[in-house]
């Protein structure tokens, strides 16, 4: 098989498997998998900046929450389809604005600036509690969760909608890493001065990576609000900036499948441990330390290094 055929077979095969699981999974895992696909889309958006461009952002909860609140607050006024697009736009525009400032710094300073802006965003949501209902959050009415005649509060529709979003994001990421745009991002990650010397406008490329990443994160946030009918300030907290980092690290930074694999494993790990103890974030902490110490390439990164050199 040619490399292209292998890549298409592997990623297409995953999507077919997910579609097949729709018909066989028991309700509990069916619901979980729908949630995992939305969160994995968020992680895939994060992966563009962290995995492919090599920028450690700790502020992506800002874009996820921007998408979520843009969708949730506007949906009663402008209809579901437009509100969904508003969520994508909010994530993308937020990322461009933050990128214009934060990309002037590098390394540790970039991480702190993104963290600080996300924190300011979180506090802003709390400050305007009259509209956002703060920590308590608000429920999105069932009437607002109809898209093209599909009732998204229905479990089957919800799963298929999550799958559609995930397939779209996966396809976009696959296209990106094979396109010149994605290749130049990898060049920046590996050696930014050299990429600049070869004539690439690295600032503009990094800004474009931020925009794409923010738009996907915003789409995931908007989809989360739409599918699960809830928006709350906790989705803007630091924890939701750190979780995609954890998912991507576990699955493998800079791989297309990594975000999904990492989200799947971590979701079930935390789900299982939260049955045992209320201190379930302990698992996340231990995983972060062990991954940085022993497996910085993550699961799919290791598979690529040992087994399938062609893995995108």
């Amino acid at each position: 098989m040619s490399e292209r055929a292998r890549v298409l077979a592997l990623h297409g095969g995953l999507l077919v498997l997910l579609l097949a699981l729709h018909f066989v999974l028991p309700p509990y895992h069916h619901g979980n998998l729908a949630r995992i696909m939305v969160l994995a889309s968020y992680a895939a958006g994060y992966n563009i900046v962290f995995g492919y461009t090599g920028l450690l952002s700790l502020g992506h909860a800002l874009f996820f929450a921007a998408g979520m609140y843009a969708m949730g607050l506007s949906v009663p006024h402008i209809g579901t389809g437009t509100a969904l697009l508003a969520g994508v736009a909010a994530g993308g525009i937020g990322a461009i604005l933050l990128g214009l400032l934060a990309l002037r710094t590098r390394g540790v300073a970039f991480m702190i600036v993104t963290l600080m802006f996300a924190q300011a965003g979180y506090l802003t949501i709390l400050y305007f509690g009259a509209w956002t209902r703060g920590d308590e959050g608000f429920v999105i009415a069932r009437a607002s969760r109809m898209l093209w005649g599909l009732d998204l509060s229905d479990a089957a529709h919800r799963y298929l909608a999550a799958l559609a979003l995930f397939a779209l994001v996966l396809g976009a990421c696959l296209w990106m890493v094979r396109a010149p745009f994605g290749r130049s991002l990898i060049a920046i990650r590996e050696n930014e001065p050299r990429a600049a010397m070869l004539g690439y406008d690295t600032f503009r490329l990094k800004l474009a990576a931020m925009a794409a990443s923010g738009a996907i994160s915003g789409a995931a946030g908007a989809a989360y609000a739409l599918l699960f009918g809830y928006a709350g300030a906790s989705f803007a907290s630091v924890e939701y900036s750190i979780l995609p980092l954890l998912w991507v690290l576990l699955g493998g930074a800079g791989t297309v499948l990594g975000p999904f694999i990492g989200t799947l494993f971590m979701f079930y790990l935390i789900d299982l441990s939260s049955g045992v103890t209320s201190a379930y974030m302990l698992i996340a902490g231990i995983a972060l330390v062990l991954l940085t110490l022993f497996a910085p390439r993550g699961l799919m990164g290791t598979v690529r290094a040992r087994l399938w050199r062609w893995l995108p």
Binding site: V108, T292, P296
Partner: peptide
């Protein structure tokens, strides 16, 4: 390494905090 230590200390944060909770 600056970036990897950041990730590791985020992990330490959760370990210390959650062990204290327990």
């Amino acid at each position: 390494d600056p970036e990897r230590t950041i990730v590791a200390t985020i992990g330490l944060l959760y370990i210390i905090q959650q062990l204290t909770l327990m």
